[in-house]
Amino acid sequence: MSMLIGELASTAANGESGIATIYRALDELIEQFALDDAAVVVEESTLGRQVFCAGRRPLRADEKELLGAAPGLYTRPALDDQRVDRSLIQSLCVLALRLDALRYDAWHDPLTGLFDRRSFDRLLQMAIARSNRYGRPFTLVLLDLDHFKTVNDEQGHPAGDAVLRDLGERFRRALRSGDTAGRIGGDEFAMILPNTEADLVPALLDRLRRAAGVERDCPEFSFGVAQCPTEASELETLVQLADSRLLQAKQATR
């Protein structure tokens, strides 16, 4: 029991994933008390009621009752041990989940669901460090919608928000798993495309353009691209390079 509580405390202190901690806690219970199975039902303010089964396994048909069960710890066989403080475990699982929800909100742009400026900068810094350490190239793409102001001016801000939201979703779908996309300003986006050499970039940009649906209802946009480490291996110079190319592309559209 003590180890379980220590795991949760460690999560709170070290910023580990709350969901992983909940599963570790259930696994710990199973191991410590030789249980067949364990599940916890928690009620968290952002995510509502959530059911977690040990091992992340799918629910079986005969366990449907768990979905309607009151918040609590459920075990098979029944756990009858005085060392188990159910109320404390329950509260800590809620806390772990809340930490995850808060962390998600802190890292993501609420409109598009992409990373926000601050978290993108952090991820870019990490990508540069990885690239410098292991010599793996990546491409930084800065992207700016052309004449987006007219969408807002002529159709209103809700319409502009809808365009950005839709674009965020399209970018997410078009990117490969492992690619990172962020909304770093009003109508500015940025992407980190790992292991991408120069010759692959045009095809990726074309895919992004098609995904964005530029031939239909979405505004055109301009790109600025820079490669790490071949063109720059420091954050500032890499961003400056991509930004200056973006500016050139923008000027060409005017």
Partner: peptide, 17 residues
């Protein structure tokens, strides 16, 4: 469904230490 604890995954009311 609501008030009943799961029939197959049992629970036991245990007081805290």
């Amino acid at each position: 469904d609501r008030p009943q604890p799961p029939a197959l995954v049992e629970t036991a009311a245990v007081e805290p230490p």
